[in-house]
C-alpha cells in the first residue's frame, strides 16, 4: 500500500509527469526490448548465425 502510494505520488499525480514518464518509458522500452529479443535470439541460435562464424573467415591482416 505504502509502495503503491509512493508510486502514485511519484508518477501519476501530475498528468505532465505521467505523460512524460510514458514517453520516456517508450523510448527506454524500445531499446531494452530490442536488446532483450536480440540476446534471446542469439542465444537460441548460438553458432548458426554469420556473426558466430565470421571470425573464421576474416583476415586479421587488414
Amino acid at each position: 500500500m505504502a509502495l503503491s502510494t509512493t508510486f502514485y505520488n511519484a508518477f501519476f499525480r501530475r498528468n505532465s509527469v505521467y505523460v512524460g514518464t510514458v514517453f520516456a518509458g517508450a523510448f527506454a522500452f524500445g531499446i531494452g526490448f530490442d536488446l532483450g529479443v536480440t540476446k534471446f535470439y542469439d542465444t537460441w541460435n548460438k553458432g548458426k548465425q554469420w556473426k558466430d562464424i565470421r571470425q573464421k573467415y576474416v583476415q586479421e591482416s587488414e
Binding site: 537460441w44 541460435n45 548465425q49 558466430d52
Partner: peptide, 12 residues
C-alpha cells in the same frame, strides 16, 4: 536447422 519458428539459417 531453420525449421522452428525461432530458428535462423545455419550460415556455415
Amino acid at each position: 536447422s531453420h525449421k522452428g519458428i525461432l530458428d535462423t539459417f545455419d550460415h556455415a
